[in-house]
Computed example of a mutant assay.
Amino acid sequence: MKIAIIVNPLIPVPPDKYGGIERIVYMLIQELIAKGHEVTLYANEHSKPGCELVGYREYDPYSMLDIIRINALTSKIAFQKFDVVHTFGRMSNIVLLMLSKLPKVVSYQLPPTLSQVKKMAGLARKGSIHFTGCSNYISGQIAPYAPVTTIYNGVDTSEYTFTPAVAEDAPLVFLGRIQKEKGTDIAIHAALAAGRKLVIAGNVPDEKTHQAYFEEKVKPFIDGKQVSYIGPVNNSQKNELLGTAAAFLMPVTWDEPFGIVMAEALACGTPVIGFKRGSVPEVVQHSVNGYVCDSPEEMAAFARDIRKINRADCRRIAEEKFSSGTIGNQYEELYKRLIAK
C-alpha cells in the first residue's frame, strides 16, 4: 500500500523529548515500512521518520491562512496515487480531501471535538472516512456520529527491559507532567500511607498554575529519602526507573484518553495502580497487571499488596495488547478493509 500519514507540525517525528502522538506516529511508520508499505509523512520539517518526508509549518496563532495554505498542500494527496490517508492532526487541514473518494482515517488521541466529528462525517464522500480512538473511552464518544474503531496506543516492547523481580524495598514511581490533573500530590500521599518510598520523575510545565501546584503540593514533601524528585528522564533512564519500581502510580484526576506511560511500565513488568478514570480500566486488568481504585486510601492499600501481581503477566499483556507489532497489524487491517470497500 501507498500510505500518507499527517501529523501536526509543531514537534518533529520522532520527538526529541516529550510528544506522545509523534512517538506513536513514528512507531507506526516503522511497523508499516517493515511490512513493505510505502509511507509518506507530512510533518514538522525537522522530522526524521525513516520514510519520505513532506515538511510543512503552522503559525501561531493558527489562522484561516494556515488552513488555506495547508489544504493546498494536502489536497494534492488525492492525485498522487495514495491508497489511504491517515491523519493524527487537525481535520481542518484536510477539508478539501473530504471531497475525494480516497479512504481517510482520522485518529483521536485526545477527547474528540464532537462538533468537528459530525461536520467532517457529513462533509466526507460517503463511506470514505473512518475514525479511530486510542481507547474505548474515546471511541465511545465518536460512535454515535461516525464509524470508529478502537486501536490502543502502545510501545515498542523490545526497547523496554523486562524485570521479573524487584527488591523488597523497591520504590513506587510517578512519571509524567507534574500537574494537578496527573495527581502527583495524590501519589505522594498514597505512597506515604503505604509506607513505601516514591520516586517522582517528569517536568513541571511553565504555566503559573502548574508551577504553583508544584511549590505548594509537591515540593514540601520532597526529602530525598521517602519522596524523591529526579526531574525529566530520557528513554534509558525511564526504562531503568520503571523496571526497578514496585509499581507505577496513575492517580489521574481527569479522564485519561490512554496514558502511554502505563504501557511503558507494563512492558518493564511493572504493575500499574490507577484511578478508575478514562482509559485506565481498559489498560489495567484489576488483580492481573495491577489494580484499579477510587481513592488514595485504596491506592495505598493496593500498593502494600503489590507483590501479589505477577510481573510476567504485566509483560505478557503489554506484548499482546500494547506492542508496536499489535498496533501496526491493527492499522494495516483497517487500511485494507477501507480500501476494499
Rank of each mutant, 00 (worst) to 15 (best):
V284N: 01
A143I: 01
T209Q: 13
R196P: 10
A212G: 00
H46V: 00
Y335K: 05
E333C: 04
V284K: 00
L110P: 00
P257G: 00
K341Q: 15
V204A: 10
S324E: 08
A187Q: 02
I24F: 13
H46M: 06
G183E: 07
K308W: 02
N93W: 11
F248R: 06
V148N: 05
I151F: 03
E52M: 11
D156N: 14
L10H: 13
D16L: 14
H189C: 03
L249R: 06
E264P: 10
G140K: 06
P257N: 01
V284I: 13
G224K: 08
G89C: 07
G274V: 02
Y145A: 00
Y137N: 14
Y291C: 06
E45S: 15
L266M: 15
Q211G: 09
Q237S: 14
P232R: 12
I6D: 09
H86E: 12
H286C: 01
S236H: 15
G20H: 09
Y56G: 08
K35Q: 14
A340Y: 00
K336W: 00
L114R: 07
G50S: 08
G278E: 00
E240L: 14
G133D: 11
A165R: 14
C293N: 03
T209W: 10
M250Q: 09
P232Q: 12
I222S: 05
G243N: 12
V105G: 03
I5D: 04
V13M: 14
I11W: 04
H210P: 08
M27W: 08
K219T: 07
N203M: 11
Y108A: 03
M120D: 00
G122I: 01
R337H: 06
A312M: 07
V155Q: 01
A124Q: 05
T161S: 15
A191Y: 01
R307N: 12
A212H: 13
P49K: 13
A312V: 14
I3T: 07
N71V: 09
V25I: 08
A146I: 06
N8E: 13
V148K: 01
V105C: 03
V39H: 05
G243S: 14
H210K: 09
A187L: 01
H189I: 03
A246K: 04
V7Y: 11
Q226H: 14
I21Y: 02
A340E: 11
R23K: 12
N8C: 09
Q179F: 07
I129Q: 05
G202N: 11
H189W: 07
V25P: 12
T132D: 11
A187G: 05
N93T: 15
N8W: 02
N203S: 15
M27P: 10
N289H: 04
A212V: 12
P205K: 07
L242Q: 11
K308M: 05
R304A: 15
G140F: 00
